[in-house]
């Protein structure tokens, strides 16, 4: 991450100087900070709402029921999760929310998963294998119906926007599987204590 951060900013300033856009870069810094805080603030309400709902689901035992059903399926992928951890049920809920395109619900549940995984983490600033697997699944963006894209196409007069559903589903499924396989392989070569 250190190198990516340095690379992005370093290249930007060099490219900005060559393209005579250093003024644009300065205003991008200001507006970037602004956007970051706005995103965080806009998260507060929806985060509070879903964490509240999820707490009810947890206290009523609903999450435990889901965990027991799903446990055998995802156990091999998340080898360092304990059997009674609520993380398993929440991982299932998070991936389902993502698959259904419920971004507003997916982020709070996903962050709850991270908190639960962090509780079993020995080195608090280093990602665990389960975290890498979970985020790999998340960043692959598995989604059943790309609702927003269909809406844009329909709005612009596409005669049959739903025909992108099948090809998109194939691509997103394969990318999701690729992420899982990649995480399994990298887990073996990238032991804790190695390079960042």
């Amino acid at each position: 991450m250190n190198y990516i951060f340095f690379f992005l900013i370093g290249i930007s300033i060099i490219a900005g100087a060559v393209n005579n856009k250093l003024g644009d870069i300065t205003s991008a810094i200001v507006s970037g900070c602004d956007i970051a805080v706005k995103i965080a603030f806009s998260l507060i309400g929806i985060m509070a709402f879903w964490l509240g709902i999820m707490r009810i689901a947890e206290k009523s035992g609903l999450i435990t029921h889901i965990s027991k059903l799903i446990y055998p399926l995802i156990k091999p992928l998340f080898s360092d999760i304990k059997k009674d951890s609520p993380a398993i049920g929440d991982i299932t809920m998070s991936i389902s929310a993502n698959a259904l395109g419920l971004t507003n619900a997916a982020t709070p549940i996903g962050l709850k998963v991270m908190k639960e995984l962090q509780e079993d983490n020995k080195e608090k600033d280093v990602a665990t294998d389960s975290m890498c697997m979970f985020l790999g699944m998340n960043t692959a963006g598995f989604q059943l119906i790309p609702a927003t894209v269909i809406a844009v196409l329909a709005g612009l007069g596409c005669n049959n926007p739903t025909k992108i559903i099948i090809p998109t589903l194939i691509v997103t499924t394969l990318a999701f599987i690729t992420a899982i396989i990649t995480a399994i392989i990298l887990k073996k070569v990238w032991k804790i204590g190695g390079a960042e």
Binding site: M1, Q118, K124, D125, V126, A127, M131, C132, L135, G136, T139, A183, L186, K187, W190, I192, G194, E196
Partner: peptide
């Protein structure tokens, strides 16, 4: 608060 992302 994770700072080392490893292979993620």
């Amino acid at each position: 608060g994770i700072k080392k992302f490893r292979y993620a």
